[in-house]
Design a protein around this nucleic acid. Structure first.
Lengths: 213, 213
DNA sequence: GTCTATATCCAGATAGAC
DNA sequence: GTCTATCTGGATATAGAC
C-alpha cells in the first residue's frame, strides 16, 4: 500500500537527517579524516554498520553536507540581491545579519567551519572539490555587484568592487571561524566596525532604524 | 673527535629541516590526518621508515611545526610593538606588511594555513592544542594595546579596542586563507581598504611615504 | 532496520640487514 | 643513515543473523 511506503520513505529520510546533523557537527569540528564512521554512528546512537544502510560511504555524507552548505549560502546571497533596498543599506543589512547569525546560530557557524575545512584542504573528495570550485565565487560576484551599484549611487567607498567583495567575505569568514573556535565567553564585535570599510562618511548609521518612508 | 660529531649533528639538523619543510607544505594543504608519513618521506625523497630515525611520530613533527609557526607570528608582533612609530602608523605598517607578505610569501601563507587547520580542528595532538591556547591571544592583545594608544592619540576610530583587534586579525586571517587556497591568478586587495576600518578620517594615507621628520 | 562479526586494507611504527 | 620487510592496530565497508 502506498500509505506505508510513503511512511517508510519519510522515516528513512528522517534517519538520514539525523546522520547528516551529527556528521555536520563532527566534520565541522574535527574535519573529514579525523571523523570516523564510528563517531557518527555513536552520535546518532546506532551501530557502526548501520550507517551504510543509509549512505554508501563517508564521502557521500560529506559531499551531501557540502552541497547543502553551499546551497544555503548562495540562497541567502540571492535573496539579498533581490531585496528592494539601496546598495549601501543592503551592505549594512548583510553585515548586521551575518554578525547576528554568527553570534547566535550554532548551525551557521558549524556550516562556515565545514566550508572552511573544505576550502582549506586539498584532500577532500573530488565531488566536493568540484562543487566548491563551481559555487564559491557566487557570493563574491553578488557582493561585488552591490558594491559597484553603491559606488554609482555615491554611498560606497571608491575602490575596486571586486577587491571590496573579497575583503567583505574574507572578513566575515575570518570572524565566523574565530567565533566557531571559541564558543565560550567570546562575543562578536560590533557590526559597525566592518561597515565602516565600505560606506562613505555620512552613511555609517548601522544602528539607526530610520529608513526613509 | 668533536669535529665530526658536530658535523654529524649539523647534517642531522639539516635532514630534520627537510622533513619539517615538506611536512609544513603537506600539513598546510591537506591537514594532519590526510597527510601520511609516506607522503612526507616521498616529498623529502627518503624511505618511509627513515622518517622515524629523525622524529618519534607524526604528531611530534606536527607539534614542532605549530610551535615554530606560533613563535614566528608572535616574534613579528612583538617587533611591531617595539617600533618607534606612533600607533596609527604601526597599524598602517602592519596591514601593508601583512598584505605584502600574503601576496608574496608562500611560506607565510602556508604557515597561516597550518594554523588555520589547527585552530579549526579539535582533533589535533594535545600538545599542539595547548600551545595554541597558550599563544593565540598574544597578537590580539598587542594589537588591542596599539589601538587603545591610537585612540588616546586621536588617530584611531572610537570603538572597543579588543573588538578592533578581533576584526583586525580575523580579517587578515580570512584574507590569508583566501589567498592560500587560490594561489593561481588571484591578487590581494588594496591594503587601504582594511586600514580605513581603524583610522579616523584624515589618516588614510596608506600609500604616502611622507612621514614627518 | 538493526545488530554483531568479519573481511580487507592501510597507515603508523618497529626490527633488522646492509 | 638508509633501506626493506614486517608487526600491529584501527577504520571502512560488507555479510549474515535476528
Amino acid at each position: 500500500m502506498a500509505r506505508s511506503r510513503q511512511l517508510n520513505e519519510r522515516m528513512r529520510e528522517e534517519r538520514k537527517e539525523q546522520i547528516l546533523s551529527s556528521a555536520l557537527h563532527l566534520f565541522a569540528t574535527k574535519g573529514l579524516f579525523a571523523t570516523k564512521i564510528k563517531d557518527i554512528a555513536k552520535a546518532v546512537g546506532m551501530a557502526q554498520g548501520l550507517v551504510y544502510h543509509y549512505y554508501e560511504s563517508k564521502d557521500e555524507i560529506y559531499v551531501e553536507l557540502i552541497k547543502n552548505a553551499l546551497e544555503k549560502l548562495n540562497t541567502a546571497v540571492f535573496s539579498l540581491r533581490d531585496m528592494p533596498q539601496p546598495p549601501h543599506e543592503k551592505i549594512i543589512m548583510a553585515i548586521e545579519q551575518l554578525f547576528k547569525t554568527i553570534e547566535s546560530s550554532h548551525d551557521f557557524t558549524q556550516t562556515c567551519r565545514l566550508i572552511a575545512h573544505a576550502t582549506n584542504s586539498t584532500a577532500i573528495p573530488e565531488d566536493a572539490r568540484k562543487l566548491i570550485v563551481e559555487k564559491r565565487d557566487i557570493p563574491y560576484r553578488e557582493i561585488a555587484k552591490i558594491m559597484a551599484d553603491g559606488q554609482k549611487e555615491g554611498t560606497i567607498v571608491e575602490a575596486d568592487p571586486d577587491e571590496l567583495a573579497v575583503v567583505f567575505w574574507t572578513s566575515i569568514n575570518g570572524l565566523a571561524i574565530y567565533k566557531a573556535t571559541r564558543q565560550d565567553t567570546t562575543t562578536v564585535p560590533d557590526a559597525g566596525i566592518l561597515a565602516r570599510m565600505f560606506l562613505k562618511e555620512g552613511n555609517h548609521g548601522t544602528k539607526s532604524k530610520t529608513f526613509p518612508g
